[in-house]
Amino acid sequence: MKAAAQRRRNWAGWLFVLPAAAFYVVFVIQPLAMTVQYSLYSWDGIGVATWNGVQNYLRVFTDPDLFAAILNALKLIVFFSAVPVMLGLAIAATIRRIAASRLALVARTVIFLPQVIPLVAAGITWSWLLSSTGLVNQLLTAVGLEGITRAWLGDFSTALPAVGVIGAWVLLGLCTLLLLAGMSKIDPALYEAARLDGAGPLREFFSITLPSLRQEIGVCVTVTVVAALASFDIVYISTQGGPGNASMVPGLEIYYLAFSEREVGLASALAVVLTVLVIACALPIQWLTRDRSS
């Protein structure tokens, strides 16, 4: 009797999930299915679409401009992900011991700012800093490096790295604080023991800190890799993908294709490729760094 009531009650619990599921299905799952559907058509967004099979996908991988955008997104991972995570590790390890000091508490707030402001604002700010008359060139000139000053976002060889620097600036604070929080959970006795064994800071870092941070590092890498692959706001504001197509990324290319060139089918094929790419990168990282104990 009781079991039956229990089961009925559990089925009634579905009513609680229904609203959430409705929003999710209508505004995420449905559009996702539509993206896949659009990607098989040739459509200008206004007239009637014609069936196009896998042609759009072939173009994504053979059109040098489109493929270059995907490669650019992969290159951005170096800046959005590798730099903040490694620099964040180094910084967190250095300031670990003074993490409770007044200065560190203030710093916590300050280095979090880039994470709070809109990416658009970061883009506008940095476009100005990296312009030919901007602060970056002013500083370089001041230290005698006038020879390398340039319009960083307008130069073929530096536009993409410059976009990367903006991303690194945004994500460094988040990574540092995440890793610092992870380090604070490490048992101090481990460090004491290591010190007694005569371990220096370096060995301490590699034998204690790093292994204990598996989960935090995994999170940092996932968040930043997704940010790199799906970047849009910063590129849209700072370079619009130029010069040439030097800093074009898939997110921006989808936007251009769908809404200015009205190649909705091609845009959708690229969107599917991007979505698959993001999931293909995020899942293994999650799996590799999952905390197996829980």
Binding site: A22, Q37, Y38, Y41, W43, I46, G47, V48, A49
Partner: peptide
């Protein structure tokens, strides 16, 4: 609204629009 939009999703894109 939800129902209507779900139903519309199956035809070829653009075929339901008033041209």
């Amino acid at each position: 609204i939800l129902g209507g939009s779900l139903a519309a999703a199956c035809a070829a894109p653009g075929s339901g629009n008033a041209q």
